Computed example of a mutant assay.
Amino acid sequence: MIEFALVAVPFLAVIFAALATSLTFFAQQGLETVAATAARSILTGATQSASVTQTQFKSQVCATLPIYLKCANLLVSVDRSTDFAGAATTVPAITFGANGAPTNTTPYNLGAPGEIVTLRLYYVWQLPSVSLGYNLSTLPGGRRLLIATAVAKTEQYS
């Protein structure tokens, strides 16, 4: 019985750590799928041709989010760059409102035909409570910033 008590705590810690890690990667993959779908509409020029505003674009992106991701925790950034090396790669400092949702303003520049456009989705993921010394959070309050990025040269749409 004492042997079980000595092994139980480390065993449960490993199980909970594996579960927390797998849930985080699952959420990240869901966000990557949404980014690929949203980037396709920019790549083909469908978003630009329809003169979609930033709010409308975010609503379209939110409509494709999996049910386990909330639109209130999502930030959408679209910007163009002169070359692929100049695409945005820095992680923004996230600020939060009183309700705990991110309040940052992000760029929204869809670019023109043949330009390089970077789509970045930032999602504030609330991590499951797993103590025992295992911490995946990158933000205060047990949250992690998930980032999905798609960089492409837009087609010559008209």
Rank of each mutant, 00 (worst) to 15 (best):
Q48L: 09
F26H: 15
K58W: 06
A20E: 09
R143G: 00
P92H: 11
Q60V: 06
L65N: 03
A50C: 07
L31K: 02
C62Y: 07
S49A: 15
A39P: 01
T106P: 06
Q126S: 13
T55V: 14
I67A: 15
I42S: 00
Y123L: 02
T106G: 05
T44E: 01
P107Q: 12
G142T: 03
T105D: 15
L69N: 00
R40F: 06
T37S: 15
L23F: 14
T82Q: 12
Y68V: 11
F84G: 01
A38T: 08
L74F: 03
K58F: 06
I15G: 03
L23H: 07
S129F: 08
L146H: 08
L69T: 05
I67G: 15
P113A: 07
V9P: 04
E32W: 00
L146D: 08
L127S: 08
T33M: 13
S49W: 00
S81K: 01
T21M: 12
Y123D: 06
C71I: 07
S41L: 04
R144N: 08
L119K: 02
Q29W: 14
F26C: 09
N135F: 05
L75H: 05
L75Q: 11
W125L: 10
D79Q: 15
F16A: 12
I147F: 03
L132C: 07
S59P: 01
L43G: 09
A36F: 10
V130K: 01
S129V: 14
K153A: 05
D79S: 15
T82L: 13
T64Q: 15
W125F: 15
R144I: 00
R80I: 10
A35V: 04
A152D: 15
P107V: 13
A36I: 10
A38V: 07
S41A: 13
A8M: 14
A88V: 15
P113K: 03
A101P: 04
N73D: 15
S137D: 11
G45M: 05
S137V: 02
T89I: 09
G86H: 06
T118I: 04
T105G: 14
Q48S: 12
V117G: 00
Y122D: 05
Y123G: 00
G133W: 12
C71R: 07
S129K: 15
A38H: 02
Q56W: 08
G111K: 08
K153W: 09
G114I: 08
L110Y: 08
L23E: 10
L31F: 05
G141C: 05
P102D: 00
A148L: 00
Q54H: 13
K70E: 14
T89F: 07
R80L: 09
P102R: 01
T89W: 08
S22K: 10
V130C: 04
C71Q: 03
L145H: 05
Y123V: 01
A72P: 05
F25S: 03
G100A: 07
E32A: 12
V124A: 06
Y68H: 11
T90Y: 10
R143N: 14
S41R: 13
Q29E: 14
L69I: 06
T24L: 09
G141P: 03
W125S: 08
T95L: 06
S51P: 00
A152W: 13
V130P: 00
